[in-house]
């Protein structure tokens, strides 16, 4: 229950209403800054990624395949780039989804369920993505897989 909502329901003037702690103090403010700063970074990171993967590759005629990823992630710069892109884009996007849920779904069980599932899925995907970007090693990956 947010502090403002407690005040509407009490029907009293806020200076007279019981002082309640705000819900998650500082969180919305932090996220407000995070969305804007990560947004600025993602303009460069995400658009850069799309331009390389879909436009420059097309113009130079390189195929995107296993070899491409191996040579790309052989360079630590691209690993750091992709790692930043993964973390910032995922948290930016998931927080955006949280905001949309907050705007459209009223307080109650459904909202809580949606937010908890969103959080759980995000943690899983974030860990998966981090393991792949940090741990990928072409020498140890199998040469043949279940699709051969």
């Amino acid at each position: 229950m947010t502090r403002l909502r407690t005040i509407y329901l009490s029907g009293k003037n806020p200076s007279r209403a019981a002082r309640v702690r705000p819900e998650n103090p500082g969180f919305e403010r932090f996220m407000w800054y995070f969305m804007r700063i990560s947004g600025l970074a993602l303009v460069i990171l995400a658009l850069g990624h799309m331009l390389i993967m879909h436009v420059l590759v097309q113009l130079t005629g390189q195929p995107v395949d296993f070899g491409f990823v191996t040579s790309r992630w052989g360079n630590p710069f691209w690993r750091v780039y992709d790692f930043l892109l993964l973390v910032l884009a995922l948290i930016h996007g998931v927080n955006g989804t949280r905001i949309v849920i907050g705007d459209f779904v009223g307080r109650g069980g459904l909202r809580a369920l949606l937010l908890v599932s969103l959080g759980a899925v995000t943690v899983l995907w974030l860990i998966l993505g981090m393991i792949v970007i940090i741990g990928f090693n072409p020498a140890t990956s199998p040469a043949v897989g279940p699709f051969t």
């Binding site: 947010t2 502090r3 403002l4 909502r5 005040i7 806020p14 705000p22 819900e23 998650n24 919305e28 403010r29 907050g102």
Partner: peptide, 8 residues
Amino acid sequence: ELMADADG
């Protein structure tokens, strides 16, 4: 303080 709220 009042306006700095998730519903503010």
